[in-house]
Write a protein that binds this DNA or RNA. Structure first.
Lengths: 259, 259
DNA sequence: CGGCGGATTGAAGGGAATCAATGCTTGTGG
DNA sequence: CCACAAGCATTGATTCCCTTCAATCCGCCG
């Protein structure tokens, strides 16, 4: 088991730009890694819509999510950020952060002012890299839309658990189908377009059937094949081409996934 | 009526780059407009996942949509492209188009090979413009996710009708709350995460209540305020900062919206 | 020990899906 | 010029997934 239980990377990069993305990704990450690592406690905002000086972040460990609120107080979580993900790239060209990014757990991250990152785009390789990151986020978003629009609760949860799993696995943060996902059931609900109550019931079913357990921030996938069956029905693998090639490992020792 | 019935533009551009986006947008559009206009009949693919040579398109008139299919044959429409929209920008950095773009009606468009557009990113202003376009699409996608995840059928349809209306209005294609939207009810359903049948019933309700009519590709908004009430509940205006400033009008006479 | 956020669970109701027919247009061919 | 097929729109009846409302329980902390 193991080997082929992780989806092959899919949206590969255009051949003509793989070299550019290699070096661009390396330099972009480098710029962030040269800043001191900062920390945010769980539930504190990392990027806030009203920030004077918008910024871009690179997550080192812990999880965060991008969310926005409805007038009636409900919330939608558009994206879950895992270690290695960038956040707030929109700030480079748009005024006023589109949404806020909140730490789900204690989070270690690097941050640069939007203006600084904008200046980095003078480097063509970095500009291409940022276009790539945008395209990936875009695909991932469309995938979530399809998931919410067409799949039932069990399948949506399966997609989430597998997405995070595959992301962490590819980046080398985990080697077995177990990981920390510091989200409350309410946050999962807000991410998947469900209610807290129904998420709870669905998780119970997955647990009782021996497929997966999600308890207090710990995910244990017991039967990854059956879990993938639930998630099957989705158009494409879609967890995008994973990371910028081996940039992280050049500078840092294995990054801890948990908070 | 009229004036304030259209939402103000919202995600404004970062002040530092408005100039760049002006000229970048102009040059980018210019590059497309110099190619001969091509046409696609309704329901034909404009960009297909299996294209040898991936390309980027700029819609001149008519509508198209980006979609992908589920293994069981169901479909998800991730984005509706209106005149003035770009499509397939992901192709510049990713290999293999992420999804296919299909003409909803007869469509007039310009197209350039991905490699050509990639070369254009050497122009820093154009690179920034493309980042902006990506960011806008991204926000729009998140907005759709929130819509599908948290709003009911009537609200989702209201959001769609208003989004298209505002887009066309801002670009100067229409001046009254009436426009052509050449989509079948099934396509609307696939876009909003509903079923054909339920879309039909909901449209009937909106019609009976004198709020809006959507009949055979023609949209007539009868009471835009009440329609906005339905759609209210959404986090942010979100139809992004509209278009690249006045680039279209420099070269082209008023573009027809319909097919 | 209360207070609190999060997790659980039961009961009831509703919005949307599903199943199944029936019109309505339009384009095609006889 | 009409019959006919095909796609789309419409509508009724029924089912069910998910939401809503309401309690209870648990672990944690000042």
């Amino acid at each position: 088991m193991g080997g082929d239980s992780v989806r092959r990377e899919w949206p590969r990069y255009a051949a003509a730009v793989t070299e550019n993305l290699m070096s661009g990704g390396r330099r972009l990450r480098q710029a962030f890694l040269q800043t001191p690592m900062r920390f945010a406690v769980a539930r504190s905002p990392i990027i806030h819509p009203t920030d004077r000086e918008p910024s871009v972040v690179l997550l080192r460990n812990g999880f965060a999510f991008r969310s926005c609120y409805f007038p009636d107080g409900r919330r939608a979580i558009a994206r879950v950020l895992a270690p290695g993900d960038f956040g707030g790239l929109d700030n480079i060209v748009l005024a006023g952060p589109a949404a806020e990014i909140t730490a789900a757990s204690r989070v270690g991250y690097h941050t640069l002012p939007a203006a600084t990152v904008r200046a980095l785009t003078r480097d063509h390789d970095i500009a291409l890299t940022m276009l790539m990151l945008g395209a990936e986020a875009h695909l991932q978003g469309d995938r979530l839309t399809a998931t919410i629009g067409r799949l039932d609760a069990a399948a949506r949860i399966a997609v989430l658990l597998l997405d995070i799993h595959d992301r962490l696995f590819r980046r080398g943060f985990i080697s077995r189908p177990t990981y920390n996902l510091p989200m409350t059931q309410e946050q999962v609900a807000d991410h998947l377009g469900l209610t807290l109550v129904h998420v709870n019931r669905t998780l119970r079913r997955l647990r009782e059937e021996g497929i997966a357990v999600f308890d207090r921030g710990v995910v244990i996938i017991r039967d990854i094949d059956r879990l993938r069956e639930f998630a099957s029905g989705l158009p494409q693998p879609a967890e995008l081409a994973a990371e910028l090639p081996a940039a992280t490992s050049t500078t840092v020792s294995p990054i801890r996934t948990d908070a």
